[in-house]
Computed example of a mutant assay.
Amino acid sequence: MKSSRALIMLAIAILAGLAAVVFASRWLVHTSSSAVTPVAVAIDDINLGQPINTNLVRIVNWPTSSVPPGAFADTKALEGRVVRTSLTRGEPVLESRLSPIGTKGGLSAVINKGDRAITVRVNDVIGVAGFALPGNYVDVIVNTQAPGSGSGSGSDQHSISKIVLEKILVLAVAQQVSRDDTQPKVVNAVTLEVTPDQAEKLDLARSVGTLSLVLRSQVDGETFKTAGATKTTLFGAAAPVPASAPAAAAKPTRVHYAAARAPAKRDCVGVLSGISGGMECF
């Protein structure tokens, strides 16, 4: 009697345990499936300006609470899209990292609307020893002759170095557009992103003088107005004073002469002394 009751209780406990396991597993499966979202990520590194195909991305389960805005849940939606900033392996593909729909691959795909790309010739000095890399910002300095300086002797005193463009984005160095490599590269050409007005100014600057690139902080957006450096200001001398107009002819000084005064009238008497005489006035 007692043994049969114990067996019944054991069977009930086993059934209850199995039911708990089944319900718990179903709850975990349901919870885990609702807590993740499919997100497209890069299978390997994707370079700037490179078109995307289904062989470069795959779908992974991403925690729903931390899915970044602009993520894609279907790799077919990424077919043919062009990357405007380099992606690393395992990084989610976001709409903000892609060029507009219909853009073809290449450097032109990463140029902002309304801007242009212009290439300038550089060397190891002009190119900041190869540290002007894609994604960096530079200022452009031109060394030339100041307007109005002659070609005769003394014209070197009119040489001037002036910052003509500030905070210009480096798009590429030579044919390299990747922005993930921080190693310096000494190249012979640098491509800059400029506005149409800046493109005209830069083209004129390189035709009238020598260009230099000045590397600046990526987070520094402040601009400065400078007058440029000349040979005179380089050594701290005062700026030459421009020749003034010839002085006006001095006016003749007018001399005033005092009129001669008539002698004051006095009383005089004749004095006779012996055989001589004279006049005594008082």
Rank of each mutant, 00 (worst) to 15 (best):
H30Y: 11
Q50C: 06
W62A: 08
T31F: 02
P38E: 02
V39Q: 02
I52L: 13
V60H: 04
V39P: 02
S34R: 15
G49N: 05
N61G: 09
S66G: 06
L28C: 08
R26F: 08
L56A: 10
V57E: 00
V29Q: 04
R26E: 14
Q50H: 11
S33Q: 15
S25R: 07
W62P: 05
I52R: 05
R58Q: 10
T37D: 04
T64W: 06
T37H: 14
W62Y: 11
S32G: 09
R26A: 15
S66Y: 03
L48F: 07
W27M: 10
A40P: 00
V60D: 02
N61P: 09
G49I: 00
S65D: 14
L48M: 14
N55H: 10
N55W: 08
T37K: 11
V57P: 01
R58F: 01
L56K: 09
T31D: 06
R58T: 14
P63C: 12
H30G: 04
L48I: 11
S65K: 13
N53T: 15
P63Y: 09
V41H: 05
P63W: 12
A35R: 15
N53D: 15
G49M: 04
A35I: 04
T64K: 15
S33N: 12
I59E: 03
L56W: 09
R26T: 05
L28G: 14
D45W: 06
G49D: 07
L28F: 13
T31G: 01
P38G: 10
S66C: 06
L56Q: 03
I43L: 10
A40I: 03
I46H: 05
Q50R: 15
V41A: 02
W27V: 08
S25D: 12
D45S: 12
S66N: 07
V60P: 01
P38W: 01
N53A: 07
H30I: 12
P63E: 14
V57Q: 01
P63H: 11
V29G: 04
L48G: 02
S65L: 10
A42L: 07
V36H: 10
S25A: 13
N55G: 08
I46T: 02
